[in-house]
Amino acid sequence: MLEIKDLHVKLADEDKEILKGLSLRVPSGEVHAIMGPNGSGKSTMSYVLSGKDGYEVTSGSATLDGADLLEMEPEERAAAGLFLAFQYPVEIPGVGNMTFLRTAVNSQRKLRGEEELSAAEFLKLVRTRAKSLKIDADMLKRPVNVGFSGGEKKRNEILQMAMLEPKMCILDETDSGLDVDAMKLVAEGVNALRDGKRSFLVITHYQRLLDHIKPDVVHIMADGRIIKTGGPELALEVEHNGYADLLAEVA
């Protein structure tokens, strides 16, 4: 379970608070969605949880299954089971996609004190999982995300997720830049990973993605905290009425 309590975060080199008392619980096996207007702090939350530099936590806590995420290095958070699917996956020229995947999988296993996968075991696994995401051998051979289309980049994120088998997946606007077919493919990839134990936090602007990845709970975030929590119907309400009414409610 991911538990965020009264989290306050400011930019490290500026006196600007972005998260202002964010609290959130995502129990094991559940899918939660976060929606909210631009600038509400959704991406900041995902970066702070995964350990990106440039932010300062001034108070509050964030734990994954009781372990203090904020005390860990980013790679330790990953090994503890946290995964962030990036809104803009980074291109890494010169590093092969397959090499990167294998290094990541084995680094995590090593950090957890597990045995590393052999080349053969890894290859078998990656082939099966890549196939279901329609990722061909050529994409695996190419440098990480270099020359990938928007859809290929997002599928590659889901492939990494499938290979790393995290407990808690954060999807940061995974639907941005995707056409309908690509979005379906990505959603299928995510749904295939739902196993009753793994949790998801889906950050999105649009209800559309939630037609494909059905959330148990929907949160509305504004000005650095959650202002309303409800069922899937909350997403539909936003789709029809926008955020204005909700914002007026809490103001």
Binding site: P74, E75, A104, Q108, L164
Partner: peptide, 12 residues
């Protein structure tokens, strides 16, 4: 790129 790799579990 460094953060992307680290966030996947590769030590810095």
């Amino acid at each position: 790129a460094l953060f992307y790799m680290v966030s996947r579990g590769v030590p810095r």
